[in-house]
Design a protein around this nucleic acid. Sequence first.
DNA 1: TCTTCGAATTAGAATAATTCCAATTATTGC
DNA 2: GCAATAATTGGAATTATTCTAATTCGAAGA
Lengths: 143, 143
Amino acid sequence: MISLDANSSPTPEELPPEIDGLRMTKQRREVFSVVLAERDHPTANDVFSRSQKRMPTISLATVYNCLEALVSHGLVRQVNFEREPSRYCPNLSDHCHFQDQKTGTIHDVVFKEGVNLADFLELPQGTEVSHLEISLKGRIGSN
Amino acid sequence: MISLDANSSPTPEELPPEIDGLRMTKQRREVFSVVLAERDHPTANDVFSRSQKRMPTISLATVYNCLEALVSHGLVRQVNFEREPSRYCPNLSDHCHFQDQKTGTIHDVVFKEGVNLADFLELPQGTEVSHLEISLKGRIGSN
DNA sequence: TCTTCGAATTAGAATAATTCCAATTATTGC
DNA sequence: GCAATAATTGGAATTATTCTAATTCGAAGA
Ligand SMILES: [Mn+2]
Ligand SMILES: [Mn+2]
Ligand SMILES: [Zn+2]
Ligand SMILES: [Zn+2]
């Protein structure tokens, strides 16, 4: 399990050669470390420019490939707000997203202890939910 | 208020010349009536081809313009599933969306009586939510 | 009814996030 | 080291949506 401590995220070199059956290539480690480094939900392009700092030869296509690999192996979450470019989130705990309309900043929002989908949704019986995305927008406090 | 009865939705001619301060042009009535006619959450393209049946000269740009006008006046809801093309929904009651991954069909899902956002989300105090989108994907029953 | 004028419509071009492609390069298992 | 396989790369392609500039519409007043 990769640490999510606010002030110590792994450098690419610190990431193992394989995670969860996914071969961690040099580029995947770079991309993963960029996503882990900050909790600001960067877009693919953000990840690309940050990655380029340490790895100037990485391509945008590779960033997309790596993100896709990380997402499909459950190491990173893809976050969508309406029709905006996808963003990427290293927080694997159950949570959803709030976008401050003033700044565009995206905040993680956690579910209350012990709540369960069926507690607030009238789901047709027999539905098996495999994917859930909750996105909020609004203002914060005095902003 | 526009009727949402399953088996009688207004023809374009039956729609008034203005709704909620929005001037209902011929094209907007056509587009609105198409969205009202079926609860299958059509894409802009779907709306375009259905509209063309009655109004062969309507353009796709106009369909986008009309949908945007209807959405921004709160007469129609725009529904997003990840990075798929937007869909449009005439159901203005509080609800969210479930996509059957087998068929792609989108179903309305209503919230349980009396539930409230703050009941299941740990919202930072002072947040004022102006927009909420909940999208589920999965299987239904024996499918 | 005629005129005016802002708003709406239209066809087509432009945009931009993402995906695809074909060639190259890296890695793995022998 | 030598296939075989997988990943990376640059660039082209895709596609939903938006933009542009020209035309048309339509409400309101003369
Ligand atoms: Mn998602
Ligand atoms: Mn929405
Ligand atoms: Zn997050
Ligand atoms: Zn709906």
